[in-house]
C-alpha cells in the first residue's frame, strides 16, 4: 500500500475529468482492490459533481465511505457505489438544511438520551465534524484523513468511532461518527435513486429483493426457502 502522492487539487481535477475507477486508482486505495482490476472494462463514469461539499470535504467523505465499505468480492467501494454522492445530495437538500428539525433555542448540551441538541443544521454539523476530524488526523499523523494509508484510515476511524480522537467543536468524535455512519448506512441500503446503492449492490449483498408488488403466494411457497430474485428498485417499477 502506498501513500497518496497527488496534491488534492490535482487529484480532484483528475477525478472530475477521468472515470471513477481512474480516480479511485489515484487515491492509491483501489490499486490493491478487486474493483481496480475491472477498471479497464468499466463504462466511463459520470463526472464528479458536488452540490454542497467543498474539495476538502469531498475528499474526506470519499475516504471515509471507502473505509466503511471497502471494495471486496461483495461490493465495490463506498465511493464507487455512490455513497459520497448520496451524502453530498442529502446534505445539500432538506435534510442537510434542517427540515423537520426543531431549531429553537436555547441550545443546551443535555444527556445523550436527549438526542441531537446542537444549533447546527446537519450540513453545518458535517462541515464542523469533517474539519475536526482532519485537524485530529493532522495532529496525530501529520496528514488529513484522505491522505492516510488504508491501515491508518482504519486506525483513525476506530479512534473517531470510540471517542478517543479529541474533537474541540462542542461535540465528541464518536457523536460525529455515529451520525456519519447512520447517513452512510442510509445511502448504502436506500433505493438507488438517491445516488447510493448503485446497481442495487447492497441489496444483492444481503439478499433483499427490493419492492416486488406482492408476496401473497410466496409467503407460503417460500417458507424457509431461499428467495433468490434479482432486486427491483423504484426505477424498475416506474
Amino acid at each position: 500500500m502506498t501513500e497518496v502522492k497527488l496534491p488534492r487539487r490535482d487529484f480532484l481535477k483528475a477525478a472530475g475529468a477521468a472515470s471513477a475507477a481512474g480516480a479511485a486508482a489515484a487515491t492509491g486505495i483501489a490499486a490493491c482492490s478487486p474493483a481496480a482490476e475491472t477498471a479497464a472494462t468499466a463504462p466511463p463514469a459520470e463526472p464528479e459533481i458536488w452540490l454542497t461539499l467543498n474539495a476538502t470535504e469531498a475528499a474526506f467523505v470519499k475516504a471515509v465511505v471507502d473505509t466503511l465499505i471497502p471494495a471486496d468480492e461483495l461490493t465495490p467501494s463506498g465511493t464507487d457505489v455512490g455513497l459520497a454522492t448520496f451524502i453530498d445530495r442529502q446534505l445539500a437538500g432538506g435534510f442537510g438544511n434542517g427540515a423537520k428539525l426543531y431549531r429553537s433555542g436555547p441550545f443546551l448540551p443535555g444527556k445523550p438520551e436527549h438526542g441531537y441538541q446542537l444549533a447546527l443544521s446537519p450540513r453545518d454539523f458535517f462541515r464542523a465534524g469533517i474539519s475536526e476530524a482532519n485537524a485530529w488526523t493532522t495532529k496525530t499523523y501529520g496528514k488529513e484523513f484522505d491522505r492516510l494509508t488504508v491501515e491508518q484510515r482504519n486506525e483513525a476511524l476506530t479512534a473517531i468511532e470510540t471517542g478517543k480522537a479529541q474533537f474541540n467543536g462542542g461535540f465528541t468524535s464518536n457523536f460525529f461518527f455515529d451520525n456519519f455512519l447512520q447517513l452512510s448506512m442510509e445511502g448504502f441500503f436506500a433505493d438507488p435513486m438517491y445516488g447510493g446503492n448503485k446497481n442495487k449492490v447492497a441489496w444483492k449483498m444481503i439478499g433483499f429483493p427490493g419492492l416486488p408488488a406482492s408476496y401473497r403466494e410466496e409467503v407460503k411457497t417460500y417458507f424457509n426457502k431461499k428467495y433468490d430474485k434479482e432486486p427491483q428498485s423504484i426505477a424498475d417499477f416506474s
Binding site: G94, F95, G98, A99, K100, L101, Y102, R103, K111, E113, H114, E186, F189, A190, D191, Y194, G210, L211, A213, I234, D236, F237, S238
Partner: peptide
Amino acid sequence: IPAIRDELKYTNRHELFQDTAMETVSLRH
C-alpha cells in the same frame, strides 16, 4: 407503488409524521 416503497423517505425522513420543526415535546428524566 412504487413511491410508497421508499425506506429513506418514509422511515428516515419522516414523510408522514408530525413535523418536529413545527412542534415537538421536551423531555427531562
